[in-house]
């Protein structure tokens, strides 16, 4: 079977500065991968390049998602093809209600998949189920997107959106940061609930603690824009023990 995501020799720059320097990564359906690395190694850039954010310029390489040229697609086309980015810093959008926005998003995806659109009642029913699974208040729906949410609420709201959109590939950018242990468990349950033979996740994280609850199939170390080491879940523990110093030094030597 074709891998779900193939990243080949990906180079990208931001504001003229080269950040990604030849990323190679393959993710099969059914797998969860963790991408770990020190600050500034290019983790968030990788997430933004995959989701199509403006200002992130790909200078070389390609990304094939589900058999399609991902880099040729607009952000909304990527979302409809099944990519979901859980933002590291979900932004506040005053005046746009979560339910109005999310219902449009859910129905845009359903149209893409040839499914009938949800009406207000069906949407509400699904949303309430997912909210209660995430131990979130239903008031979330009527509030403006992320406005006045605490850091933890914002992260849970991202997972709630992911649960509603049921992506093929979830990219979780530092979703564990800013969460207390209870919230972390809830978020992890939310991520695990979406695991399945058709689905995959790319978890970008600095620490391994989320990986205690969402056990990855593979762990990659990103340093200075390249994947410098790949291993199993035990690699995360090793990093927790020894830090990233060795990799920074190694890639500096290589450069």
């Amino acid at each position: 079977m074709e891998p779900l995501l193939v990243i080949k020799n990906l180079h990208a720059r931001v504001e003229g500065k080269a950040i990604l320097d030849g990323i190679e990564l393959t993710v099969n359906a059914g797998e969860v991968h963790a991408v770990m690395g020190p600050n500034g190694s290019g983790k968030s850039t990788l997430a933004y390049v995959l989701s199509g954010r403006e200002g992130y310029e790909v200078t070389e390489g390609e990304v094939i998602f589900d058999g399609k040229d991902l880099l040729a697609m607009a952000p909304e086309e990527r979302a409809r093809a099944g990519i979901f980015l859980a933002f590291q810093y979900p932004i506040e959008i005053p005046g746009v209600s979560t339910s109005v926005f999310l219902k449009s998003a859910v129905n845009a995806l359903r149209r893409q998949r040839g499914e009938s659109e949800l009406d207000a009642m069906e949407f509400l029913k699904q949303a309430k189920e997912k909210l209660s699974a995430l131990k979130m208040d239903q008031k979330f729906l009527s509030r403006a997107v992320n406005v006045g949410f605490s850091g933890g609420e914002k992260k849970r709201s991202e997972i709630f959106q992911m649960a509603m959109l049921e992506p093929k590939l979830a990219i979780l950018d530092e979703t564990d940061s800013g969460l207390d242990i209870d919230a972390l468990k809830i978020v992890a349950e939310g991520i695990n609930a979406l695991r399945g033979p058709e689905k995959a996740a790319l978890m970008i994280t600095h620490y391994q603690r989320l990986l205690d609850y969402v056990v990855p199939d593979k762990v990659h170390v990103l340093a200075q824009g390249r994947i410098v080491k790949t291993g199993g879940k035990e690699l995360a523990l090793e990093l927790e023990e020894n830090g990233y110093a060795a990799f920074n030094a190694a890639s500096k030597d290589a450069a």
Partner: peptide
Amino acid sequence: EALFYLRARGLEERDARTLLIEA
């Protein structure tokens, strides 16, 4: 940033802009 956030959830750019204008 708001526009990108909405598009990254699958909203057409036009629909996302409309939501933000209404907001």
